[in-house]
Amino acid sequence: MPGREELPSTIARSSKKAQRTWIKAHDSAVETYGEGQRSHRTAFAALKHSFEKVGDHWEPKQSKGPSDEQAARSTPKPGKTAGGVDANAGKEHLYDLAKELGVAGRSSMTKQQLVEAIDKANNRKTAKARS
């Protein structure tokens, strides 16, 4: 099925460039691996190189590159990801993002705690947008 028809809601609420990135990567992965979960993982890995999830949509990252260890793999496998949070970004960027999302207690969090808190805040905003 073409990527345009399978576009996740968080990407549908994002810029046209983010949508094109996901669709192109998804369709290419379907040609290589066939339809299914692997094609979706590959498309998200490609998206995470240029975009990060902020709330219920994806925004361009400050610098391109994989957002977490999982996205850095050439062939994504099932495993733990940062859920679209740019875990490789600096702590200051993560703090600013947590502030934008209204994460409580952010000033005393470690970088890893900020990543996890931002992921939870993103999931809450996505769930709210879907309802």
Rank of each mutant, 00 (worst) to 15 (best):
A43N: 03
S50C: 08
K128E: 14
K64Y: 06
R41L: 13
W22T: 10
A104H: 10
T126Y: 05
S14P: 06
R124V: 08
S131Y: 12
R73W: 11
M1E: 13
E116A: 12
I11Q: 00
S67K: 00
E5F: 03
R124N: 08
G79E: 13
G102H: 15
E52M: 14
A127P: 02
K24E: 10
K125Y: 11
R130I: 09
K120C: 00
P66V: 03
E69P: 07
T75I: 14
K128F: 07
H26G: 00
L97W: 02
H57Y: 11
E116P: 00
D119T: 09
L47T: 11
V85P: 00
H40A: 08
T81I: 11
G84I: 03
E92G: 00
K53W: 09
S9H: 12
N123T: 15
H40L: 03
A72W: 11
K24H: 06
G83N: 09
H57P: 01
A29D: 04
K128V: 09
S9K: 13
H93D: 12
L101W: 11
Q62F: 11
V103Y: 06
Q112L: 10
T110F: 01
S67Q: 05
S39N: 04
L94P: 02
P2V: 07
P66N: 06
T75Y: 12
T126W: 06
R73S: 15
G102E: 15
I118M: 00
T126H: 02
G102F: 15
L114R: 02
R124M: 05
A46K: 10
S74Y: 06
S108H: 13
H26D: 01
V30W: 12
E31K: 13
K120I: 01
